[in-house]
């Protein structure tokens, strides 16, 4: 096939599901985070913490916490597992592989997940309809991360910077079902979709 004829257009996970628009005073505002590079990182050896320190100059927190370093957001998703994100085009998985070498198993997952940013005055009331964990500010602090199940769908959830704003990642194939739950649950609060 001639080069010119071959146009491989990328489609985001929520392509065709999210249609921008909605009331100005909506209690819920949703944006798809489309431009993320994503990788899973699994520590393979006890040298992992040191490798991170060498590469990024930080000590990784233990537990389900978020830390941001060199524009990379690292989310603690398991005792040895992290979910890494970085905005932009720059490949993340290969960078991490290079930095961490044999201390980590890195897999590119940039296409494997859909990520939504959900915010608005009613965001906690909305998430209470599916997320079985306590998101009250006293219980879920700014750097907290949770891997959990919402409406039978596995999600990763973390606070973005604002108090009433959460990022939620889920498997790409489940974005349609997640959206059907979210949009139905948000209807009573008013829902606005914004482009990134």
């Amino acid at each position: 096939m001639a080069d010119a004829a071959l146009q491989l257009k990328a489609r985001s996970a929520f392509d065709g599901l999210l249609v921008p628009g909605g009331p100005k005073d909506a209690g819920i505002v949703v944006t798809e985070r489309k431009d993320l590079q994503i990788a899973t990182v699994i520590a393979r050896s006890s040298g992992f913490a040191e490798a991170i320190k060498t590469a990024y100059g930080i000590a990784l927190p233990s537990g389900p916490k978020r830390i941001v370093v060199h524009e990379i957001t690292l989310l603690g998703t398991g005792p040895r597992a992290w979910f890494a994100l970085r905005a932009g085009e720059r490949p993340l998985a290969s960078d991490l592989e290079q930095s961490l070498g044999e201390h980590a198993a890195v897999a590119d997952q940039s296409d494997g997940y859909g990520v939504l940013r959900v915010s608005g005055a009613k965001v906690r009331a909305l998430l209470a309809k599916g997320v079985p964990i306590d998101l009250h500010p006293r219980a879920f602090a700014a750097d907290d991360v949770a891997v959990t199940v919402c409406s039978h769908i596995g999600i990763m959830l973390w606070r973005s910077d604002a108090d009433s704003s959460f990022d939620i990642a889920m498997f790409r194939s489940l974005c349609g079902s997640f959206w059907s739950w979210l949009s139905e649950s948000a209807e009573e609060f008013g829902l606005r979709v914004e482009a990134e």
């Binding site: 146009q7 491989l8 257009k9 990328a10 985001s12 940039s110």
Partner: peptide, 16 residues
């Protein structure tokens, strides 16, 4: 193929 190109590659494959 990476899933974001899944639809596009399928279309290309099917055209060929």
């Amino acid at each position: 193929v990476p899933a974001r190109y899944g639809a596009a590659v399928l279309e290309a494959l099917m055209a060929l």
